[in-house]
Each structure stands twice: as C-alpha cells, then as structure tokens.
C-alpha cells in the first residue's frame, strides 16, 4: 500500500482495512486518512455495519448442537446408490426400487418384514418397561443417561414410536380439536409445546401423545395426508452424550433428524425425501420462531 502525496487511498485499501488484513503501519495510515476524509470514513463504517449485520444473523447458529451424523459425516462411507443429501438417517430409498424384482427377493423382503414386526413387538415391551422404571423410580427426576446405557438414538426411537402408534386404533391421546390442551400437556411433560402447522404441505394434524423417549419423555405428533399416509414428528430434550445409532433396515420410510432449542426432532413417514424435507423445513422454521424470545 502506498500513500500518494495527495493522500488519496485506493478503495482496495479501505476494503483491506475493514477486513483486517493490513499490517500495523498500513492500518495506521488508513486510520489517519479516515480521520481527514469523512466520506471515506462513512463508507468504511457502512461496510463494517454490513459485516456486523451478517454476523448477527448467522452467529447464533454456532450455538446449535449439530446432529451426530453430521459431525461424523467425513468418516462415513456414502451409500453406493448416490449421495444422501441430508444429515438424516434414511430407511430405504423411496423412488429407487428396482424395476424387476425376483420372486426370491420378494419372499426375502416379506421374511424381513415379519422379523422386523417381531423385533418391534419385543422392543415395545422393553420401551414400556423402561418407561415404567422411569416413572416409578423417580417421577420428574432427570437422571443422567450415558452413551453406554442409552438404548437407542433418536431416529431409532422415533421409528419405534411411529411403528407402535401410527396404525393403532387410537394413535393419539389428545386429538387436534383440543390443541390448547395438547400444547399444555406436552409443555408439562416434555418441555416443548409448539405444534407445527403442516397443512400447507397437505398434512393435517390428527393429534399427539407423550411417548417413551431415549432419555426423557418424548412428544409425538401425528399428521395425516389426504391419501391416508401418516407422518410422525417425534421430539425429545436432547442429550449431547447420546450418539447416533446405525440405521435399521426398512423400506419406503424416510426419517429426518435435526436439533434446535435444546431438543432433538425427527420427522418420519412413508414419503419421498423431497416431500419430507419440505415438511421438515416448515416444521423447523415454526419451531425456531417459537423458541426465540
């Protein structure tokens, strides 16, 4: 950087000053110039205010806790059928089923589904037992859960909850017609009460319930599409020590996990990734909005 006799500074110098890349001598010369040239000082100040405005919007993101699957993404091996463009655990890949399936493949899938249903029944009993232990051993107490004792990650637990309730004759405890009561109940039991409105995505709220969580009571909302398909939104106060479990086999299901406002959320349902992402974005935006003071 040079200072011509007239004291005129190049605009590049002013940008460099704002960006903090000048050495002490250069910086001092710019400061002297700005003290004598108020128009340039105002220009520099406007750029500094731009930077401050950008940081004010995006700095809070640093305080959010990234999903474990995102933190370990570099160590993960991508699925052979293509990049999974979501920090999510996917159960199967909607839309990429093979066109021709052999009879043996169909029978094998039916056997897997039967096994999955059996495992699900066992896990349901275990989940009920764990909940009973949680209730009777110390109602309302927060017991620290370590990675060693945590039975499952949030996505796996959301899947279990989905499989347990979504097809039940009484899938919810409080239906959507009593929304205020549902919100109050979830606030008291789970700690979070914002019920996202996904009607614009074609998902009508049926209602919600409290379900056994990984480390604390979880909330579970069920939405229904016009075609009868049901999507669940699972949420639970997140614990940093809980690591993501490996995804289980399944078909035609998509689960998207995210964390915000100290809670873990999982949107799970039999829809394509695109539809689920749009719905997840909508839900996340409403949740963030509700959690801001």
């Amino acid at each position: 950087m040079t200072t011509p006799p007239t004291g005129f500074l190049e605009e590049a110098d002013l940008h460099a000053f704002v960006d903090g890349i000048l050495d002490p001598d250069q910086r001092r010369r710019v400061e002297e110039h700005l003290a004598q040239h108020p128009e340039d000082a105002a220009l520099v100040e406007s750029w500094q205010r731009q930077n401050a405005a950008i940081r004010a919007v995006y700095e809070p993101i640093l305080r959010e806790i990234p999903a474990p699957s995102l933190r370990s993404a570099a160590a993960q091996v991508a699925a052979p059928s293509g990049t999974i463009e979501s920090g999510a655990t996917h159960w199967g890949r909607p839309g990429v089923l093979p066109r021709v399936r052999r009879r043996e493949d169909i029978l094998a899938q039916q056997r897997r589904q039967a096994i999955f249903a059996s495992v699900l029944a066992v896990l349901s009993v275990a989940a009920v037992t764990a909940l009973a232990t949680f209730i009777f051993a110390g109602r309302g107490e927060h017991r620290p859960i370590t990675a060693a004792s945590a039975p499952q990650g949030y996505v796996a637990r959301a899947g279990l909850t989905y499989a347990t309730y979504v097809s039940d004759q009484h899938p919810v405890e409080i239906d959507a017609s009593r929304l205020e009561e549902l919100s109050s109940w979830l606030k008291a039991r789970v700690g979070f009460y914002k019920v996202p409105d996904l009607s614009q995505q074609g998902m009508r709220l049926i209602g919600g319930r409290v379900a056994p969580g990984v480390a604390a009571p979880a909330g579970f909302l069920i939405y229904e599409r016009p075609d009868g398909g049901r999507v669940g939104l699972y949420f639970e106060r997140s614990v940093a020590t809980i690591s993501q479990q490996a995804s289980k086999s399944g078909s035609g299901m998509t689960a998207i996990e995210w964390r915000t406002a100290d809670f873990a959320f999982v949107l799970i349902g039999p829809l394509s990734l695109d539809l689920m992402q749009v719905a997840a974005e909508k839900a996340a935006a409403q949740i963030i909005s509700a959690s801001q003071p």
Binding site: Y58, I61, S69, L70, A74, T83, Q277, A280
Partner: peptide, 27 residues
C-alpha cells in the same frame, strides 16, 4: 453457519444436508 449464509434463506435442513454431502465427499 457458512452453508446457511451461502443459501441466504434456505432452510436449516437443506443447509445441513449440503454440509453432510460435502463432508462425506471430502472424507
């Protein structure tokens, strides 16, 4: 943070998906 800012208004799930894919590819 960078992915969210780069998207300038995109949702956090899309931005996180971008980061996930980028880090997976880098890995």
């Amino acid at each position: 943070r960078y992915a969210r800012a780069l998207g300038a208004g995109v949702g956090l799930v899309v931005a996180d998906g971008l980061v996930h894919s980028a880090l997976q590819g880098l890995g």
